[in-house]
Design a protein around this nucleic acid. Structure first.
Lengths: 126, 126
DNA sequence: CAGAATCCGCTCAGATACTG
DNA sequence: CAGTATCTGAGCGGATTCTG
């Protein structure tokens, strides 16, 4: 274990790229105004550890700006950067797509599940 | 274990929605022409199990059409549906975004890692 | 309040072996 | 060739505990 300090900056191993199940949710919540840590926590029900991890990666990649206020108790605010705002637009596009196409997807799933997943079968080869 | 058959249609539990690390790769490979199972396998280096799972979910959701030819040896082709083609466009948009913004992201990462992840600190509260 | 550190269970993806 | 069945290891996300 570390001998002197245990701050994050001591660890030599940088976090690997994460897909981030909660990433889209977080940046969506940051759309309209900066938010504090526990505000995000309450709105999402996300665990503290995962929220921290998600926010750190967003910060690290330049999508979110973290600002600490040296008050007691401490106050930390997260807000979208310009780059983060672009990511938000992108992610809204993705969400819109799946929302628009949801009926087709559900219909396809019903067909697939009803047929037990049996594919088209052709006897002739093209 | 199953008493009589072990075909997929026997299992009552349907697969849950998967994020699919390889999904984008696969539909990109299907852009220009239908492809056979092992062709996809060779081009990606993806394991056979994961390829099957990925293709099945794409098929189930209506993005990919699977066609079996009753020949010996068997021949199975995968191709994009119209819906799949829309998903392809979307995913190309996503890839383009991260490609375009890669420099900004890498710059942000360097700043973050160099500073040990220390945030902006403000002494006054707004 | 905003985290860091730890432990833990689950799911995902790869490796392997076997079939129609 | 195109799968299915199984085992296994790694990583993610949650719960809990502790601190500045």
């Amino acid at each position: 274990m570390s001998a002197i300090s245990n701050s994050r900056s001591d660890k030599g191993d940088r976090p690997k790229a994460r897909s981030g199940k909660w990433t889209m949710t977080i940046i969506t919540l940051l759309r309209d105004q900066p938010q504090r840590f526990n505000a995000l926590r309450r709105q999402t029900g996300i665990s503290q550890k995962t929220l921290t991890t998600t926010l750190r990666e967003l910060e690290r990649n330049g999508f979110v700006l973290r600002t600490m206020f040296a008050t007691i108790p401490p106050r930390v605010e997260y807000e979208l950067t310009e780059l983060g705002r672009e990511l938000l637009e992108l992610s809204e596009g993705v969400r819109d797509f799946f929302q628009r196409r949801r009926p087709q997807m559900e219909a396809a799933r019903e067909r697939f599940d009803a047929s037990g997943g049996e594919p088209e079968i052709r006897l002739n080869h093209p």
